[in-house]
Design a protein around this nucleic acid. Structure first.
Length: 644
RNA sequence: GCUGCGGUAGCUCAGGGGUAGAGCACAUCCUUGGUAAGGAUGGGGUCGGAGGUUCGAUUCCUCUCCGCAGCACCA
């Protein structure tokens, strides 16, 4: 026994610096009572020396204590965790045959995985949610206990909770087995929990049910996962539900149909039929990126889509990604559709002798690739089997890597800005479990890439094990108009492929050396990027991207000839124009083109044709301005120019 | 790929063992109207596909394809 155990008085320091003296052992709940009844009522949990714990947890030594209430930053996580538990309790009450497994907090809410033969229906969700509210109304006290491992295993097995027993069995040997009870529901949990179910704000909602593998492994049985969202206030919940609606409203699949941009059909699953308007948009992307690449010292190439298996064997793709490659055969040759452009780019690089004077070579391709993605992964134009990358490979010397990475980051930021994305974040993905190349090479590659991103001056987060099989990578995640992030750009450092495909250059010493290869993309998949743009702008593209930039509508058919002249003049100035000379009222035409999200509407009637003017209306505004045709053409041509 | 749910007109959706319905869209005619829907008439469906049960299937059952959500995957 040491001195600490013999002490009977504890010094409890509060956030405001006050020190309370209490007899040991005490609990946060005791401390709260001393502070006041208001706080006692509001208290959800406590932070003891920075660690989040239950209010009732015995405190046996001097500590700094902070009381967690709904106003604390930690409250949301606690509340969501408890919502998951209340869901589990409700499920056990309504459906005694379910086994409970795990129920963690996730972004915006929580889920709980249940094992049950019969699937949950939407009606079950409604019943569960109603029962959850009853449990909150019951205000059941939540108590915490620590059990010996054997007792916990025996208990869970005795009540038929095999998954829980398995979790207990797999807990590390030194871990406390904490058992929480609320009402008749007894559960293994790390905690902490609210002191009673009545403390749970009722701003929660069960949202969906779906399958999920036990322990996230597709070889394990599938459980039924119920998703829920939970918030501190009803206003927060409403705001969240509104955000979901907003995302649905922006869904690129819906807007793509409404704006007649593209379609997908059964006969070409995972591939896109681009309609004239969608393809116009797509072309703006390509043409803009190409302009930026030209001024940034890239050369553009184009390489075969269908390539002999031997190249993929040499590159390592056959070994690592054969399952996801489309293959075919011709005259006894095994061929594969390229899933990536890099091996082909190395072939271009290998033509003729390369000197150090040729480096860096920045070789770009809008490369059409095919990957046999699992059917369940396909999603609109965001995840497809046939796509085009804004790909490039930079062949350079080791001492050029940093400068190239910095240059690339600058180009990427510029292009994101051009497309209306001001913010992006960077992740550093290091070596994956399945990889090519030796650890020493990886050590070097990771160190260099890290140095490069630091030189570029971007803060980054670590994504352990997420690198490509041939090298570490930087991932660039951009943030869209409603705060969602999308990984688009990537910069990867590769020592392996130049070796495997024998790329060399002659250095100043007259000897052959291996170039370093930087794989890089900015938009990633053009198809996906179009999808992101659609959702980012909700279909309301900036003028330079809009498939139709101006609609010229007549007031009456008397103005048809003048309207045609206006349209032709705008077209000659490079604008994308639609002439609407239908015998409909101008109000109807305004409505149609507004719904079609055409940025500019020019109306012409008798007044305009007599004075060689146009009446210009901009999307989203009610008024219109009258100006001379020549001036309108000059102004709109300027406005429609891509970002310089 | 796995689990669940779904597939009815171009779109959104209703219906339901007795050979199908709405709104919008589309076509024709009338209307020429100054900034978010003028009117009339009309055409349109192997009820995703294949089998089965039944006197009879779009409806019930089986298989299959595709879609959606989530999981797993994403060089």
């Amino acid at each position: 026994m040491n001195d600490a155990d013999q002490r009977t008085a504890l010094a409890i320091t509060l956030p405001d610096g006050r020190v309370l003296t209490l007899d040991a052992p005490t609990t946060a709940a005791d401390v709260v009572k001393l502070i006041g009844p208001g706080l006692a009522k509001a208290a959800l949990a406590a932070k003891v020396d920075g660690r989040l714990v239950d209010l009732g947890l015995p405190i046996e030594r001097d500590a700094r204590i902070e009381i967690v209430t709904l106003k604390s930053p930690d409250a949301l996580e606690l509340v969501r965790h408890d919502a998951a538990h209340v869901l589990a309790e409700a499920a056990k009450e309504l459906y005694p045959d379910v086994q409970v497994t795990i129920g963690p907090v996730i972004e915006d809410g929580f889920y709980y995985d249940f094992a049950r033969d019969k699937p949950f229906t939407p009606e079950d969700l409604a019943a569960l949610e109603a029962r959850m509210r009853e449990i909150v109304a019951r205000d059941e006290p939540v108590t915490r206990d620590v059990w010996p491992r054997d007792k916990a295993i025996a208990f869970f097995e005795s009540i038929g909770e095999g998954y829980k027993a398995e979790i207990v069995r797999d807990l590390p040997g030194d871990e406390e087995i904490r058992i929480y009870s609320q009402g008749k529901f007894i559960d293994l949990c790390r905690g902490p929990h609210l002191p009673s179910t009545g403390k749970l704000p009722t701003a929660f909602k069960l949202t969906k049910v779906a399958g999920a593998y036990w322990r996230g492994d597709s070889r394990n049985p599938m459980l039924q996962r119920i998703y829920g969202t939970a918030w501190l206030t009803q206003a927060d919940l409403d705001a969240y539900l509104h955000r979901i609606e907003e995302a649905e409203r922006r869904d690129h699949r819906r807007i793509g149909r409404e704006m007649d941009l593209f379609h997908i059909q059964e006969e070409a699953v995972g591939a896109i039929f681009w309609h004239p308007k969608g393809w116009t948009l797509y072309r703006q992307l390509v043409e803009h990126v190409r302009r930026r690449l030209d001024t940034d010292g890239y050369v553009e190439v184009n390489t075969p889509m269908l390539v002999d298996r031997s190249l993929w064997e040499a590159s390592g793709h056959w070994e690592k990604f054969r399952e996801q490659m489309f293959t075919t055969q011709a005259e006894e040759r095994a061929l594969a559709l390229k899933p990536m452009n890099c091996p082909c780019h190395v072939q271009v690089f290998r033509q003729g002798l390369k000197s150090y004077r040729d480096l860096p070579t920045r070789m770009a391709e809008f490369g059409s690739c095919h990957r046999n993605e699992p059917s369940g992964a396909l999603h609109g134009i965001m995840r497809v089997r046939a796509f085009t990358q804004d790909d490039a490979h930079i062949f350079c010397t080791p001492d050029q890597v940093t400068a190239e990475a910095v240059k690339f980051c600058r180009l990427l930021a510029q292009i994101y800005r051009d497309f209306g994305f001001e913010e992006f974040s960077v992740r550093f993905a290091d070596r994956p479990a399945v990889r090519a190349g030796e650890d020493a090479v990886w050590d070097k590659a990771e160190a260099w890439l890290k140095a490069a991103i630091e030189a570029a001056g971007h803060p980054y987060q670590l994504s352990p094990g997420e690198g490509a099989f041939y090298g570490p990578k930087l991932e660039f995640h951009l943030k869209d108009a409603i705060g969602r992030t999308w990984q688009c750009g990537t910069l990867q450092l590769d020592f392996v492929l130049p070796e495997r495909l024998d790329a060399t250059y002659v250095a100043e010493d007259g000897k052959e050396h291996r170039p370093v290869m930087l794989h890089r993309a900015i938009l990633g998949s053009l198809e996906r990027f179009v999808g992101i743009l659609i959702e980012h702008y909700a279909g309301r593209f900036p003028l330079w991207l809009a498939p139709t930039q101006v609609a010229v509508a007549t007031i009456t058919n008397d103005s048809d000839a003048y309207a045609a002249e206006v349209a032709a003049t705008l077209k000659a100035a490079g604008l994308r124009v639609e002439l609407d000379a239908r015998a409909d009222k101008i109000g109807y035409k305004v409505r149609e083109h507004t719904l079609a999200k055409v940025p500019l509407l020019i109306a012409v009637g008798k007044r305009e044709s007599e004075t060689q003017t146009v009446s210009l209306r901009r999307w989203g505004t009610d008024g219109q301005e009258s100006l001379a045709l020549a001036e309108a053409v000059a102004r709109l041509r300027d406005e429609a120019r891509p970002p310089a």
